[in-house]
Computed example of a mutant assay.
Amino acid sequence: MTQRPDVILYDGDSYPTALHLFEALKYLPHRPDVARMIREAPLQDMSAISERHAAAMRPDWDNVALQMMDDVLYHKFRQHARARDILLATGNAPLLHQDAGDAFWGGGPDDLGENHMGRALERVRQRLIDERAR
């Protein structure tokens, strides 16, 4: 059976996209019911479900969110060879997530944002390179 290109397998469950998994991790392991709703939601409804349950979000989320994104991306690239090959083909070039509307995950309107997504991709890329070298 061929896995859909966006599906991420994590802890025995299938998530339709990496974003679904990232949002669900805000509620795992303490609220698996909310995580399941997020996992099963259409992409356009997923964020609203997460926001509706924000009071139940893990209290340490702000401290672990970047590590969780690294974990999500690692699972994605480990499970999808084509995406992994594209990421590895970037060598050791700096990666910029170009998103004019997001200066946290992306470069923002002037590409001077925090670029946390680009840096997470760089960390995952290095982890994959290190694993290949072993």
Rank of each mutant, 00 (worst) to 15 (best):
W61K: 09
D70Y: 07
Y15W: 12
D102S: 07
A48K: 01
D6V: 01
L21G: 04
D130T: 06
A89L: 01
D33N: 06
D45V: 04
S14D: 12
G101Q: 09
G118I: 00
A100W: 12
R58M: 04
R134S: 11
R39H: 10
D85R: 03
G91T: 10
D11M: 11
R127I: 03
A41S: 15
H30T: 14
R39L: 09
K76V: 01
Q79F: 04
W61P: 05
M69A: 04
S47N: 07
G12A: 14
P42N: 13
M46Q: 12
L128N: 05
F77P: 02
D11N: 15
P94V: 13
A103D: 15
Q79S: 12
A24E: 08
Y15D: 07
G12P: 11
I129E: 09
M69V: 03
D99R: 02
D11V: 05
D110A: 08
L19Y: 10
N115G: 09
F77R: 05
L95E: 07
G108Q: 10
L43S: 14
L121S: 13
Q79E: 08
R123W: 04
D110K: 04
R123Q: 09
Y74E: 11
L96S: 05
R36C: 05
R125T: 01
G107E: 13
P16C: 04
M1E: 13
I38C: 01
M117V: 06
D13F: 12
H75L: 03
M68G: 06
L96P: 01
L25R: 13
Q126G: 07
P109V: 13
G12W: 08
R127A: 15
L9T: 09
P42Q: 10
A100P: 15
N92C: 10
Q126C: 04
H116R: 13
D110P: 00
A48T: 00
H53E: 08
L88E: 10
A133W: 02
D11T: 12
H116S: 06
R119K: 15
G113Q: 10
Q79K: 05
R4H: 13
L112V: 02
L112E: 10
E51I: 09
D33K: 10
L21H: 05
L73H: 04
L25V: 10
L43R: 12
D99L: 09
M37G: 03
A55H: 03
L95D: 07
P59V: 03
D111F: 12
D6T: 11
P5D: 04
E122I: 10
G12N: 05
R31T: 06
H97I: 04
A56C: 00
R125W: 05
S47R: 14
Q44T: 10
L87Q: 06
T17Y: 00
R31V: 07
Y27W: 06
K26I: 11
E40G: 11
M68I: 13
W105E: 15
A48Q: 01
